[in-house]
């Protein structure tokens, strides 16, 4: 039970942490300086969610691991985030499509978790649900403009959507969620979010004149700690400072 809750919190925290790291890449690289700041804001919101969830995971686990220990001193196989958020996103269209998918899912998840019987988790969700509402709004506006924009932007957005779509399904994988957590009303079954999340995404891509991709799901096993090649590079960058200079402060 404790182990199940720790694992659940780590998975949600890792989603937010790894996504945040990818968002930060855009600072100084966005199409406009205003968007640099927006991406930083979104990434920092996610980092805040990750901090709360990882700190609580460490507390529940009871081995004295802090949020920093969990973020910086775990190895790739110990991270439980979905593969969707760990892959490189050096195309702005990909970044916005992915943000649309991830924030739509996070938003439904956190909205449901505000009713969790675990009051700490409900509290984290209560704060995050307002943040993710804005993330979703931000992604939606860009997807609409780029999808229903010029011929070039439309083609690139459709390519981005086709590339990201296979990684969406893992968000609804519930194999890592302990059944007791569901019975006690602590966790939310991710599979139960599928209809509302996909409906929300479908609404946006329809208005953006994009076609729902007809592609097979990727073999995505991040929830088991099995990640894509790019995850190692992400962790190397994210963890380097903390590992090379233990206890460093500034």
């Amino acid at each position: 039970m404790t182990k199940g809750l720790t694992r659940y919190l780590l998975a949600l925290g890792d989603d937010a942490l790894v996504s945040s790291q990818r968002m930060a890449w855009w600072i100084s690289r966005s199409p406009q300086i205003e968007e640099d700041i927006a991406m930083a804001n979104l990434g920092l919101d996610q980092l805040g969610q990750a901090r709360s969830l990882l700190a609580y995971a460490g507390e529940v686990e009871g081995n004295g691991r802090s949020e920093d220990d969990l973020a910086y001193l775990r190895d790739e196989r110990d991270f439980l985030n979905v593969c969707l958020v760990e892959r490189e996103q050096k195309d702005f269209g990909v970044a916005m499509v992915r943000l649309l998918m991830f924030s739509a899912w996070q938003h439904e998840l956190y909205a449901a978790l505000t009713g969790s019987t675990d009051l700490t988790l409900a509290g984290v969700a209560g704060k995050a649900v307002k943040e993710t509402a804005y993330h979703l709004d931000h992604a939606e506006h860009w997807v609409l403009r780029l999808g229903d924009g010029t011929e070039e932007s439309h083609l690139r957005m459709q390519a981005a959507l086709d590339a990201e779509w296979p990684w969406l399904a893992e968000l609804f994988d519930n194999s890592f969620v302990n059944e007791d957590l569901l019975l006690q009303g602590i966790a939310i079954d991710p599979a139960s979010l599928r209809e509302s999340v996909e409906g929300r995404i479908a609404g946006v891509i329809g208005r953006a004149t994009l076609a729902r991709p007809d592609v097979a799901d990727a073999l995505s096993r991040g929830r088991e700690g099995r990640h894509t090649e790019q995850m190692g590079y992400l962790l190397a960058e994210m963890q380097h400072l903390a590992r090379s200079h233990p206890e460093v402060t500034w």
């Binding site: 205003e34 968007e35 700041i37 927006a38 804001n41 804005y134 709004d137 931000h138 506006h141």
Partner: peptide, 8 residues
Amino acid sequence: ALRNARDV
């Protein structure tokens, strides 16, 4: 513009 203003 409104969203950028919110963020900036």
